[in-house]
């Protein structure tokens, strides 16, 4: 394609942030290693050079301190973008997130707004073990008062970041490490797509149909979408037309798009790299079974992370992670396709 401008998610996030910072002096960025280094995962690269130390701040390793400070700055009229380097680190700072950031709008009856973006990396698959590999989508999406988004590609990454920065509410922006386009974390080619130079928004709370199909709906988010797309490609060769729904947002959840897809296909597979129980996969299935029971031609399936801490050893971790093979097998089963010899 002529004039194609392929960016990684990391660069798309940084570009959206820079564009908003040019237009809106209340936007500033802080977190661990986000200034001089440009972010461990590259999503703040170039910001320090353009905007300087006042608005692009390396913080102490002190998440309770600087996320709490972001809440105070947001209530005072600024738009902080803060980074929790790994989502797994929420354990040291969750009070600032769910008791302050997520509740102060409600507790104040709208007296105060808390417009801030909390960026955080998710996901495993590279043998970093269970304190640096979780997704925890459900943990954040479960608690009211914060929006939750996670892009699967650079186009959505830029548009969701712009939308998050313009939202008057706190937004948890979860980016999957395996999609960042950092060479040292592997590269998912499907995440690197054309990104327009001009600023634009992707609506928070709106899912996308990443691939159309009629036989089975595969619902996922972030890296799971790519597993779904790869599975759909293989299923197509076997005569099964899978539709892939990219949620993009968990809060608000686009239940209409999920229900409409399942109404069409009659079959549902949820792919979730977060833990199996009490999480996003259950919520998606409930969304359908609460309203579409008659549409279902087979029991829904979920391919999620088993309820175990994430192990280090490659063979152990890979055994647990969702992948295209697992999706293909599940789709064939619920579509009644013969088990291959």
């Amino acid at each position: 394609m002529e004039n194609e401008r392929k960016l990684t998610i990391a660069r798309a996030m940084a570009e959206a942030t820079a564009q908003e910072m040019r237009d809106d002096p209340s936007v500033f960025v802080m977190g661990e290693d986000i200034a001089e280094l440009g972010g461990v995962f590259g999503n703040t690269r170039g910001l320090l050079e353009e905007f300087g130390k006042e608005r692009v701040r390396d913080t102490p390793i002190s998440e309770t301190g600087f996320i709490g400070a972001a809440v105070g700055a947001a209530q005072d009229g600024m738009k902080p973008v803060v980074e929790l380097m790994f989502v797994d680190f929420f354990g040291v700072c969750f009070d600032a997130i769910y008791n302050l950031m997520a509740k102060n709008t409600y507790f104040s009856g709208g007296n105060f707004n808390v417009p801030m973006v909390l960026m955080t990396s998710t996901g495993g698959g590279y043998s970093d073990a269970g304190q640096h590999s979780q997704c925890l989508y459900g943990s954040f999406a479960h608690l009211p008062g914060m929006k939750v988004v996670s892009p699967s590609n650079a186009y959505d990454a830029k548009g969701l970041m712009t939308a998050a920065l313009r939202d008057p509410n706190p937004v948890i922006y979860m980016y999957h490490k395996g999609l960042q386009g950092m060479g040292w974390l592997g590269t998912e080619a499907g995440a690197i797509v054309h990104v327009p130079e001009e600023s634009y928004e992707v609506e928070i709370g709106k899912a996308a149909i990443a691939r159309e199909g009629h036989d089975v709906t595969i619902v996922s988010i972030a890296q799971g979408v790519h597993h779904g797309l790869k599975a759909a490609e293989r299923l197509a060769d076997q005569g099964i037309r899978a539709e892939v729904v990219d949620l993009r947002s968990l809060v608000p959840l686009d239940r209409d798009t999920i229900r409409a897809s399942v109404a069409k296909t009659g079959r549902l597979i949820v792919v979730d790299e977060d833990y199996h129980s009490y999480g996003v996969s259950g919520e998606i299935i409930a969304t359908v079974t609460e309203s579409n029971m008659a549409d279902l031609k087979a029991p829904p399936k979920r391919i999620a992370y088993p309820d175990v801490p994430i192990p280090f050893a490659r063979v152990l971790e890979q055994h647990c992670l969702p992948n295209a093979d697992k999706i293909v097998a599940a789709a064939r089963e619920i579509c009644g396709a013969p088990v291959p010899a």
């Binding site: 500033f28 709490g68 809440v71 105070g72 700055a73 005072d76 600024m78 009070d95």
Partner: peptide, 22 residues
Amino acid sequence: ACSGIIAQGMGPAAGAALSRQI
């Protein structure tokens, strides 16, 4: 503003101070 959780008003106070400084 308030927090009912011990010491958790301190981060927001630091942030408000940062907001004024910036």
